[in-house]
Design a protein around this nucleic acid. Structure first.
Lengths: 130, 130
DNA sequence: GCACAAGTTTACGTTGACGTAAACGTAATT
DNA sequence: AATTACGTTTACGTCAACGTAAACTTGTGC
């Protein structure tokens, strides 16, 4: 069974963030470590949330956006109405990411093209050196 | 032949940004419109750069990062040494984007999974209503 | 028992990416 | 000639996401 309690340093080291960042995320309501008056103890749920937050950041999401996604995951929707709006939100977010995926594809194509051009220019340039 | 001169309002409207934003990008060296003392005239090259910048933003790139990419594209590398370092930069950026692509895939999987769960909960919930 | 390493809170500072307001020029319309 | 619409510069304001410094508490080794 994998460990399910972490100190602030454990997480800071594992995810290469500062302790300040972890406290900041807590202040923002993104993490909820248990407080023993002089230290924080993070659960594996906190660890998972942190992983999601940082992944979100790498994709350019704001903390608020990641927060919204996490709350969707953690949601305990009971009635059908709540479930419907929740599903709608999930679909909207997915659609946004799919759009982003297209942008990413385009930028990768551009980069592939330019790499090719520079490679061609390079062989050309080397040829001149006989 | 498509138009190749644009006013600040043309571009602002087309890309749904404010004129302030366009002036800010100019100040940062990202756009270089011709100045006729009382107005800016943007070329189609400026328009292309703006498109790249905004695409970069949607992917979470900073203006500096987009700037770097644009300079790579516009680069007039002559000797083999310049070409080599340029190719290296392009490859590095590509690799970063490929990593981002993986993150995006993971987040999409998570969202698909949660959508499925909520859909299951919804049919469950509806069943109870007989 | 005392240094010291690692934790804590409080609070001001910083950077990026613009927003916003003031104060003004220019060109077209009325 | 005056209003209106759009442009300009200068400069301070703002918000997110932390950085950083100060001042303090709490186990831990020697």
């Amino acid at each position: 069974m994998s460990k399910n309690e972490y100190s602030i340093r454990d997480l800071a080291d594992e995810f290469d963030v500062t302790t300040r960042t972890l406290r900041f995320y807590e202040e923002k309501g993104l993490l909820k470590p248990v407080r023993d008056k002089n230290s924080r103890t993070y659960s594996s749920a906190d660890r998972t949330r942190l992983r999601l937050i940082l992944r979100g950041k790498r994709l350019g999401l704001t903390l608020d956006e990641s927060h919204a996604i996490i709350m969707m995951y953690d949601s305990q929707a009971h009635n059908t109405e709540q479930l419907r709006t929740l599903i709608a939100k999930v679909r909207e977010k997915r659609q946004q990411l799919i759009e982003q995926q297209k942008d990413l594809e385009l930028m990768l194509i551009d980069l592939r093209d330019s790499e090719e051009r520079f490679l061609a220019a390079l062989t050309e340039s080397e040829a001149k050196l006989k």
